[in-house]
Design a protein around this nucleic acid. Structure first.
Lengths: 142, 142
DNA sequence: GCCATCTGGTTGCCTCATGCAACTATCTGG
DNA sequence: CCAGATAGTTGCATGAGGCAACCAGATGGC
């Protein structure tokens, strides 16, 4: 199918255009490593997370997640507490500074995305959103 | 705008769902480092490229590109030749093995993407493609 | 023609990202 | 109570990227 080929190239270009290359800078220009930004986003959304759940959300190996959390802690953005119900587990929670950092990131993201959306013709915006969601779901199931 | 927020999350999920995390494996399951796969794709499309053009296409710094090309050469997939019109430049070209490798990658990508597209409702496919293209163009201009 | 400047590449050095394997500590089921 | 599963940590390896310093060829002004 010709669509396949087009979709492949579309995705490849999308990835590069979005700037997912730089690991030490968010695609939205913030000087925060990408994986920390993802983690921050999940933690900001849920408040507290088991480290293993975080790993699952980010689709990372537990060791990578462990180091990631350590980095957040070194920045003063998160803290570990023992899980009350399971002596093996740890809970990860954002500190007030971490909450602020997450908010800053969200703002920068919002700015970048509004700029992008402004370049998308008015009538197409809803379509773009829906298409991206559909595509992500399709990938998830694959 | 509420759309912003949705788009942000949609993109974040898309990135993770697509598996762009693993640097030593393509999202399509091939045991080829991601950046080599991108380079291979561009070279397969154009035949010969100035190294500086390749850097531009991949949005990479010249040093990174230089190392990338060296890796391709070490795998026997590419070769450097001096640019005939400019004593500083080099041309990069795929070897026959490189062409084969690029074809294998394209095939794996096609397989992955057809599987994904199959999960996208028939009527939506064209929309998804268009949306992705529009979005990429919008990002490019930002 | 000659030098200042620009441009394409290479290499050294640093940081980030990630997985696997080995090991520890803690559950859980028989 | 012990075997096996599960949560985390740490050591080791690979890959990715940028910036700065450096080299060599190109170019423009004078």
């Amino acid at each position: 199918m010709a669509d396949d080929r087009e979709l492949q190239e579309a995705v490849a270009r999308f990835v590069r255009a979005f700037g997912l290359h730089q690991p030490d800078r968010t695609p939205c220009g913030q000087p925060v490593p990408v994986s920390e930004a993802h983690a921050l986003g999940e933690l900001a959304r849920d408040g507290v997370l088991r480290q293993s759940d975080l790993a699952h959300r980010l689709r990372l190996e537990k060791s990578t997640t462990s180091r990631l959390v350590t980095q957040l802690i070194n920045r003063g953005w998160a803290e570990r507490t023992p899980a009350p119900d399971d002596g093996r587990g740890v809970l990860v929670r954002l500190t007030p500074d971490g909450v602020k950092a997450a908010a800053r990131l969200a703002e920068a993201r919002a700015a970048r995305f509004s700029a992008v959306l402004e370049r998308v013709p008015e009538g197409e915006r809803a379509d773009v959103l829906r298409a991206l969601t559909i595509l992500t779901e399709a990938m998830d199931e694959t």
